[in-house]
Lab assay of single mutants.
Amino acid sequence: EFILQPIHNLLMGDTKEQRILNHVLQHAEPGNAQSVLEAIDTYCEQKEWAMNVGDKKGKIVDAVIQEHQPSVLLELGAYCGYSAVRMARLLSPGARLITIEINPDCAAITQRMVDFAGV
């Protein structure tokens, strides 16, 4: 995967993360976080594997957030924003999600994903 990915990106003209974002923009409903998550899950199941938590493990994350109702949540590494959208949609009003992503391209994609999801 890591050796072939740059070749695939070159042939496709963009990165996997950008392709995931484009899929979301084309297939998800703006302002609907659940729709965004479903679009990412569908893309990763049908098109390309991606390094995200996914729906199965995501339900565990959901349960922890719902049980503890944090007022501040810190995410280290956002990748394409799946977990940020997943967690933010469950936060109480006034709660904050702080996401740190070292890769500026992934940070920009995450910001667009979060904005599109409306969270």
Rank of each mutant, 00 (worst) to 15 (best):
C106W: 04
I3N: 03
E1A: 01
I7V: 02
I100M: 07
A33T: 05
E101V: 13
K16E: 01
D105N: 13
Q111L: 05
P6L: 12
A33E: 03
E29D: 14
L97Q: 05
I20S: 03
G118D: 09
Q18L: 04
T110I: 07
Q34P: 15
P30A: 08
M113K: 03
L97P: 02
L4R: 06
H23Q: 08
D14G: 07
A108D: 11
E17K: 00
H8P: 06
H27Y: 13
R19G: 14
R19C: 12
L21V: 06
H23R: 00
D115E: 06
E17V: 11
A117T: 15
F116S: 15
I20F: 04
I102L: 09
E101G: 10
P30L: 03
N32T: 08
Q26L: 06
L25P: 02
D14N: 02
L21R: 01
N9K: 04
D105H: 08
I98N: 05
H23Y: 04
I7T: 04
S35I: 11
L4M: 10
E1K: 01
P6R: 02
M12V: 14
Q111K: 14
Q5P: 00
M12L: 09
Q18K: 04
T99I: 02
R112W: 12
V114A: 09
Q18R: 00
D115N: 10
P104A: 06
N22K: 04
G118R: 15
L21P: 00
A108G: 02
E1V: 09
K16M: 07
E29G: 08
H8Y: 07
H8D: 13
A108S: 10
A108T: 14
S35T: 15
N103H: 03
C106Y: 00
T99S: 09
D105Y: 11
K16N: 05
L97R: 08
I20T: 00
I98F: 15
L10V: 12
I102T: 08
N32I: 12
Q26E: 07
I7S: 08
P6H: 14
H27Q: 12
F116L: 13
K16R: 01
D14A: 09
T15P: 04
A28V: 11
A107T: 05
I109M: 03
N32H: 15
E17Q: 07
I3F: 02
D14H: 05
E1G: 06
G118C: 04
E17G: 09
L4P: 00
A117V: 15
V114M: 12
G31R: 14
H8Q: 09
A107V: 12
R112L: 07
L11I: 02
E101Q: 00
